[in-house]
Design a protein around this nucleic acid. Structure first.
Lengths: 120, 120
DNA sequence: TCCGGTCCGTAAGATTATCTTACCATCTGT
DNA sequence: ACAGATGGTAAGATAATCTTACGGACCGGA
C-alpha cells in the first residue's frame, strides 16, 4: 500500500464511469465485450482495481474516447482542452452530413443566444 | 495460437524501451523514479508484465511522450479529420457546459436510435 | 589479460492482487 | 407486488507481481 498519488487514479475511475454511461453501455456489456466479469468492471470504476494498458486501450475504443483523456493526460491538441469535446466531436462524425449541417446551425444559435463564461 | 493479436502489447513494450533509451534512462533509474524494482521494469519492457494505467502515465511523463503513442493509439483523431468536424468542434468549445451536456445526450440518443453495424 | 563498475535478463519463494461465484440492494416497468 | 436489469460487495481459489539473488554482456583503466 504505497498510495502516493491517488489523483490520477481517481480521475481515471471517474472518467471510466462517465465515458461508459455516455457510450450507453452497462457494466455487464463492457465486461462481456472485454472478456471480463461484471465485478471486475465495477471495481475498476470504483478505483479498487488496476486497469492495465491493454484494457485501457480496449475501453477507450469501446467508449470512443482517447486513452489520453481517460488517464487525464493533457495533449496540445484541441480535443484535450475540453474533455467532452472529443467525445462530442466523435459523435458528430457519425452523423449524416445533412444532420451535421443542421446541428451546426443549432450550435450557432445556442452560442448567439447565450454568450458568456470565459472570454478568449 | 498463443499469439493471435499481440499488436498492442508488442507495440507498447517496444515503445517503452524505445522511449526510455531516447530519454537516456536506465532501467534502474526508471525503477527508482517509479518506486519499483529493476526486474519489474525489465519485464514490463519484455512484455511479461502488465503496465497499469498509473504506471503508464508516469512513464509517459518520464519519457516525455504521450500515453497515446505508448499504447499505439492515434492521438489526433480530430485535427486530421474533416474540416467540417474541426469547425464543429470549435463551435462546441464555445458552448456553455450545460448546453454541451444537453448536446451530448442528444447525440447519444441519435446514435442509439440509428441502426448499428457492430463495431470493434 | 584482469579488474571494477554498470546494465540487463531471468529464477524461485513469498506476497499481493485479481478472479470467480454468489448474495443483496436499488431502480424501472408491468 | 412481481420480474428483470443494474451495480456494489464478500470470501475462497487462482494467478499475478514482488523481492532477492545470481549470471552474462559490455566498457574503460591498470
Amino acid at each position: 500500500m504505497t498510495d502516493q498519488a491517488p489523483d490520477k487514479r481517481t480521475q481515471l475511475t471517474g472518467r471510466l464511469r462517465e465515458a461508459r454511461k455516455l457510450a450507453g453501455l452497462s457494466q455487464g456489456q463492457v465486461a462481456k465485450l472485454l472478456g471480463l466479469h461484471r465485478p471486475s468492471v465495477s471495481e475498476m470504476e470504483a478505483g479498487n482495481r488496476r486497469v492495465s494498458s491493454e484494457e485501457l486501450s480496449q475501453l477507450a475504443g469501446l467508449y470512443d474516447v482517447s486513452v489520453a483523456w481517460l488517464v487525464g493526460e493533457v495533449a496540445d491538441t484541441l480535443d484535450a482542452a475540453d474533455p467532452k469535446l472529443q467525445l462530442a466531436a466523435r459523435e458528430l462524425s457519425k452523423l449524416k452530413p445533412e444532420d451535421l449541417e443542421r446541428l451546426l446551425k443549432l450550435l450557432a444559435a445556442m452560442r448567439d443566444d447565450a454568450p458568456d463564461t470565459k472570454g478568449a
